[in-house]
Lab assay of single mutants.
Amino acid sequence: RDEDEKEKIKEALKRGNEDKAKEIAKRANVSPEEYERLRKEAE
């Protein structure tokens, strides 16, 4: 379940949809550090 959320965040970031990614991260309680890591992976 947690991994699904992280995949959704990465997908949103790949599409350049940072607002959606942040919204998912907030809902999934993803830490800022984890969010940054996902953002780097998505580049």
Rank of each mutant, 00 (worst) to 15 (best):
R1K: 14
R1G: 14
R1I: 14
R1W: 13
R1M: 13
R1S: 14
R1T: 15
R1D: 14
R1Y: 14
D2S: 10
D2G: 12
D2F: 14
D2N: 13
D2C: 12
D2R: 11
D2I: 14
D2H: 13
D2L: 15
D2P: 13
D2V: 14
D2M: 11
E3Y: 13
E3W: 13
E3G: 12
E3I: 10
E3T: 12
E3F: 12
E3A: 12
D4Q: 12
D4N: 12
D4A: 11
D4C: 12
E5R: 06
E5W: 15
E5C: 08
E5N: 10
E5T: 15
E5D: 13
E5L: 15
K6R: 15
K6T: 09
K6H: 13
K6F: 15
K6G: 08
K6Y: 15
E7Y: 11
E7W: 15
E7M: 14
E7G: 09
E7Q: 14
K8R: 13
K8C: 08
K8I: 06
K8W: 08
K8Q: 14
K8Y: 06
I9S: 01
I9T: 01
I9V: 06
I9K: 00
I9N: 02
I9E: 01
I9L: 07
I9Y: 01
I9W: 01
I9P: 01
K10P: 00
K10N: 02
K10D: 02
K10I: 11
K10Q: 02
K10G: 01
K10T: 04
K10L: 11
K10A: 02
E11V: 06
E11A: 11
E11H: 08
E11S: 09
E11K: 07
A12Y: 12
A12T: 03
A12P: 00
A12Q: 10
A12M: 11
L13C: 03
L13P: 00
L13E: 00
L13R: 00
L13Q: 01
L13G: 00
L13D: 00
K14P: 00
K14Q: 07
K14N: 05
K14M: 11
K14C: 07
K14S: 08
R15G: 10
R15K: 12
R15T: 11
R15Y: 10
R15W: 11
R15I: 11
G16F: 03
G16A: 04
G16S: 03
G16W: 02
G16R: 05
G16L: 03
N17R: 10
N17T: 04
N17P: 02
N17W: 14
N17Y: 10
N17A: 10
N17C: 06
N17D: 15
E18N: 07
E18H: 12
E18F: 15
E18K: 07
E18Y: 14
E18V: 14
E18I: 15
D19A: 15
D19Y: 09
D19N: 12
K20E: 15
K20Q: 14
K20I: 14
A21H: 00
A21T: 00
A21R: 00
A21M: 01
A21N: 01
A21D: 01
K22R: 14
K22S: 07
K22L: 14
K22Y: 06
E23Y: 05
E23D: 09
E23M: 07
E23S: 08
E23Q: 10
E23T: 07
E23K: 07
E23P: 01
E23G: 05
I24Y: 04
I24A: 03
I24S: 02
I24K: 01
I24F: 03
I24T: 03
A25K: 02
A25I: 02
A25N: 01
A25L: 02
A25T: 02
A25P: 01
A25C: 04
K26W: 05
K26M: 12
K26N: 09
K26V: 10
K26R: 14
K26T: 11
K26A: 13
K26H: 10
R27V: 08
R27S: 10
R27D: 07
R27N: 11
R27P: 02
R27L: 11
R27Y: 07
A28N: 12
A28S: 09
A28Y: 13
A28I: 13
A28R: 05
A28F: 12
A28H: 11
N29C: 05
N29W: 03
N29V: 03
V30Q: 02
V30G: 00
V30L: 14
V30D: 00
V30T: 05
V30H: 01
S31L: 07
S31E: 06
S31R: 05
S31F: 03
S31P: 10
S31I: 03
S31W: 03
S31A: 08
P32Q: 11
P32V: 10
P32N: 09
E33N: 06
E33L: 07
E33M: 08
E33W: 06
E33C: 07
E34S: 03
E34R: 00
E34Q: 04
E34M: 04
E34F: 02
E34P: 00
Y35M: 07
Y35A: 00
Y35H: 00
E36P: 00
E36K: 03
E36G: 03
E36W: 04
E36C: 12
E36S: 04
E36L: 07
E36Y: 03
E36T: 04
E36F: 04
R37G: 04
R37N: 08
R37W: 06
R37S: 07
L38D: 00
L38N: 00
L38M: 07
L38F: 04
L38E: 00
L38I: 10
R39S: 06
R39G: 03
R39V: 10
R39I: 06
R39H: 04
R39T: 05
R39D: 00
R39A: 08
K40S: 12
K40F: 11
K40V: 13
K40T: 11
K40W: 15
E41M: 09
E41I: 08
E41D: 08
E41F: 05
E41V: 06
E41C: 05
A42W: 06
A42N: 05
A42H: 04
E43T: 10
E43P: 03
E43I: 14
E43N: 09
E43L: 15
E43Q: 13
